[in-house]
């Protein structure tokens, strides 16, 4: 097989060498272009079929009412969009979404950076700690959340531990504020390992001469961090911020397993609300409308971050 291919290549090459009047149609350039399209075809088809077409369909669904039991659909125009304005639950849902995503991003980036900076001091045991901090990343989300659910019960392990040092812990999952705190912490502890590793490798990429030079100029460690380290790892910071926030906006399993969106609506984030409307209340039209709103948030945030990146990030190739 490969022999015949080679022969063909050789014969074609020799045809070129002979320099006949008409140049062959399949020049290297043309072949390259075709290969390029062929190479990206599966990925492009996947995105078209499983992302863009569904988004188009979602727009259509948002203009219709469906009865899932009978499959009947009626065109209702912009009704679901006006319903957004009068949905009494939506403001709480948006607030919960903002607190959750904001909380996760801030805590995740800060904690990830803190651990990375500490581990970057290269001491004995650093690898062990890196393994420990990373380990929740490979633990199944549902299993991880289930276990935290046990530990966060009023008579569960966390309050038991707190009791041994004389603190009476709150009833974590039963009050809005502590429930939100619980889902944020559960999510951050599970996933911060990824950002930690990315930050670590970014920190190790900072040339040590820069530090030495700064120290010679008499800069303190805080100045070095804010004037040298932070600017140099800012591309990593921004990229991880985007990935973390898009991930936070999509956190479904954590909420579904830990709080079911409660108490009241305190942890009902938009993603969970979409699921409830579409698959529990069977209101596919309204569910699609909410989903499109979620999509516009993600798009807006990304655009915003891209603009920031232009202004703020120092070295961009």
């Amino acid at each position: 097989m490969s022999a015949t291919t080679k022969n063909r290549v050789v014969s074609r090459a020799s045809a070129n060498v002979r320099g006949t009047a008409r140049p062959p149609f399949w020049t290297t350039r043309r072949r390259d272009v075709l290969t390029g399209y062929l190479f990206i075809a599966p990925q492009l088809a996947g995105v078209l079929l499983f992302v863009l077409v569904p988004v188009g369909l979602a727009i259509w669904y948002s203009l219709n009412d469906w009865n899932v039991f009978t499959g009947k659909q009626t065109f209702v125009g912009a009704e679901h969009y006006t319903a957004l304005a009068s949905d009494p639950q939506l403001p709480s849902v948006l607030l919960a979404t903002a607190i959750f995503s904001g909380g996760v991003v801030i805590l995740n980036i800060t904690l990830g950076l803190l651990i990375a900076v500490l581990l970057n001091r290269r001491f004995r045991g650093a690898t062990l700690f890196r393994t420990l901090f990373f380990s929740p990343v490979v633990v199944s989300v549902v299993a991880w959340t289930l276990v935290w659910g046990f530990l966060l019960q009023d008579n569960g392990g966390i309050n038991g531990m707190l009791a041994t040092i004389g603190i009476e812990g709150p009833n974590w999952l039963q009050h809005g504020d502590t429930a939100m705190l619980s889902v944020i912490i559960t999510q951050v502890v599970r996933s911060v390992g990824v950002n930690m590793v990315l930050f670590l490798s970014a920190l190790q990429g900072v040339p040590s001469q820069l530090y030495e030079a700064a120290r010679m100029d008499g800069a303190g460690s805080r100045t070095i961090f804010t004037r040298i380290t932070l600017p140099l790892i800012s591309p990593t910071l921004l990229l991880t911020a985007i990935i973390t926030i898009v991930g936070a906006l999509q956190s479904f399993a954590q909420i579904a397993v830990l709080t079911g969106g409660g108490p009241e609506l305190s942890t009902t984030v938009l993603v969970y609300y979409v699921f409830q409307q579409a698959f529990e209340f069977n209101d596919i039209g309204y569910g699609s409308t909410l989903a499109l709103m979620l999509l516009s948030f993600v798009m807006l945030l990304t655009l915003l971050q891209w603009q920031l990146r232009r202004k703020w990030v120092f070295h961009e190739q």
């Binding site: 988004v55 369909l57 479904f252 993603v271 579409a278 989903a291 999509l295 993600v298």
Partner: peptide, 9 residues
């Protein structure tokens, strides 16, 4: 695009 947007279609 979050998977929740595309899952119904």
């Amino acid at each position: 695009v979050p998977s929740e947007v595309t899952i119904v279609p």
